[in-house]
Design a protein around this nucleic acid. Structure first.
Length: 291
DNA sequence: ATCCAGGAGGGCC
DNA sequence: GGCCCTCATGGA
């Protein structure tokens, strides 16, 4: 991979296992806007990024108004560029080569290392909602309580202390519905230090999950998404309605409890469970498996 | 119109 | 522990 600055932009060339559309549209994040094919505005980690990919003979990714040090400090980790996805794919296929179709179809997926707090709130919102609605609500919260991006009509996700000033009634005005008290509890617990990102990162996965589930409105599935997308725990396997259908189709052939599916997948895929889950989720959803 | 969505809480047994 | 109902909102 080549990396260089050009006219205040940052360019990556010969990027392997990277497709900005696969990465953003696979359901792991909700705070982005599609400008054109393979061109997006992303709000993440308290920053804004205008990014474009040109999939010609050279796989070229343009980070607009970005320096190498911005990349090293923020985006390199965000896009999980320290992980060798060729190796990840090889290991998953050695466990079950039936994932080859899914991996080939979505070869450019990467698991984003997202901001913990935004991930927590976003996946509390996600319950019993479709992805476009989740994006809409994250946008509403950001528009009302977040910081405007200089020069763009985009708003960063609000910081903890900002959301801590927002009441349940005000949250309901944002149309989050019955999730308003859930969000309120999550914000309070993070704000008062009862829920600490650093502490969760030092805990075992089981302990961290139990701690997260003490938040009102955070159950098995939401906590697993927070662990995977917001805390970098790749050995978890969130099971939602889609993954349930996909896994039943692939492995069980009958109605099976989510807990059974989750423990089965974690044992089968081990440290690669989170990656396997994302390939399967994106591929299965686009192909309507089980519907 | 009726059903369902990247679920979880609460009541009941 | 398991089962069933409910929760607010919007799109198909």
């Amino acid at each position: 991979m080549k990396i260089y600055e050009n006219d205040s932009n940052l360019i990556l060339e010969d990027v392997s296992d990277f497709d900005i559309e696969d990465i953003l549209e696979c359901g792991q994040c909700f705070h982005f806007l599609k400008i054109a094919d393979h061109e997006y505005h992303i709000c993440a980690k308290g920053r804004f990024l205008h990014i474009k990919q040109e999939c010609g003979s050279v796989n070229k990714v343009i980070f607009y108004n970005t320096t190498i040090s911005d990349y090293e400090e923020v985006w390199k980790d965000y896009f999980d560029m320290n992980t060798d996805y060729r190796h990840i794919k090889k290991m998953i296929l050695s466990i079950d080569d039936r994932l080859e179709t899914a991996i080939r179809a979505k070869a450019g997926i990467r698991i984003l290392h997202q901001d913990f707090f935004e991930t927590l709130i976003s996946f509390i919102i996600s319950q019993n909602k479709q992805i476009p609605h989740i994006k809409q609500l994250v946008h509403t919260l950001s528009l009302r309580y977040g910081t405007r991006v200089d020069g763009y009509d985009e708003y960063l996700f609000p910081a903890v202390d900002k959301l801590n000033d927002v009441s349940v009634d005000e949250l309901k005005e944002c149309k989050v519905g019955f999730r308003a008290p859930y969000i309120r509890d999550a914000v309070s617990r993070v704000y008062n230090g009862d829920i600490k990102e650093d502490e969760l990162k030092c805990m075992s996965v089981q302990d961290a999950r139990e701690k997260l589930m003490t938040i009102h409105g955070v159950g098995e599935k939401v906590s697993n998404c927070v662990l995977l997308f917001g805390l970098g725990r790749m050995d978890v396997f969130p099971v939602d309605v889609w993954m349930k259908r996909i896994m039943e189709f692939m492995y069980f052939g009958k109605d099976t409890k989510k807990e059974i599916i989750e423990s089965f997948a974690c044992e089968k895929y081990g440290e690669y469970a989170g990656y396997a889950q994302q390939y399967l989720f994106h591929y299965g959803r686009e192909n309507g498996i089980g519907k």
